[in-house]
Design a protein around this nucleic acid. Structure first.
Length: 226
DNA sequence: CTTCTAATCCCCC
DNA sequence: GGGGGATTAGAAG
């Protein structure tokens, strides 16, 4: 059935659509709800759907108005989409003729298909990143516990003994020579002391010296040697 | 001007 | 309520 149609590119906007698309009341009275003036210039895709879709029954009465594409149309569109996610104008035209749809419908179908594919991918990516975050958080906790355990092995902390006063105090307070204000090279003397000349660092245990440098995942300001 | 994306509407199941 | 066809605005080329 050929539909007598003008090629007016007008749309019967639905009530409640975006501001610019809200139609005057008269239009609502003239056209039934669901009417789209952008019908194909050839056969109505919806009528075609009703004819081709065997599930629609094909009984008596007027064919039910249907927005859905037919299974065959959807299948061919999917097939085409698999090959290419975008269409050039020629492909679009060919496909629209093949499917008996307006090229605009084909175009819109591809646009929506791309958008929804991307949405799905984004959702999957989001789930994946959530799982990564969870496992990395666990790993971080585990490593922090490990760091704490290794730090505990350091106790008592290394001390520095003043050769002048013989007073011992924590090494962390003495990374710099208070007299000459130079950082120690930690060269050990005969007694196993790192010497500033007048100060010596007592590196209590060989096991401490053997400790590898640990990555400090949560280095705090107070941990930093000033 | 054409085509695309993003946002949104809204019919239909 | 969700899927999916359609519209709109605005960006990009």
């Amino acid at each position: 059935m050929m539909v007598v149609s003008t090629s007016l590119d007008l749309t019967m906007a639905m009530p409640g659509s975006s501001a610019s698309g809200t139609p005057p009341t008269s239009e609502l009275l003239i056209f039934p709800r669901g009417f789209d003036i952008n019908e194909p210039p050839y056969e109505d895709a919806r009528a075609v759907s009703a004819e081709e879709d065997e599930e629609s029954g094909g009984g008596g009465g007027p064919p039910r108005k249907k927005l859905r594409l037919t299974k065959e149309q959807a299948r061919l569109l999917e097939e085409s989409f698999k090959e290419n996610h975008t269409l050039n104008p020629k492909q679009k035209e060919e496909l629209s003729i093949k499917l008996n749809l307006r090229s605009r419908q084909v175009e819109v179908w591809f646009q929506n298909r791309r958008a929804r594919t991307k949405l799905k991918q984004t959702e999957m990516e989001c789930e994946y990143l959530k799982r990564c975050f969870g496992s990395l958080t666990e790993e971080n906790k585990r490593l922090q516990r490990e760091v704490e355990q290794l730090r505990a092995l350091r106790a008592p902390p290394p001390t520095v003994v003043s050769l002048d006063t013989r007073v011992a105090f924590p090494a962390s307070t003495l990374t710099m020579c208070p007299r000459c204000e130079r950082v120690s090279s930690t060269a050990l003397d005969d007694n196993g002391f790192a010497s500033f000349g007048h100060y010596a660092i007592n590196w209590f245990s060989n096991s401490f010296l053997a400790l590898p440098q640990l990555p400090d995942l949560n280095l705090k300001a107070e941990d930093a040697v000033v």
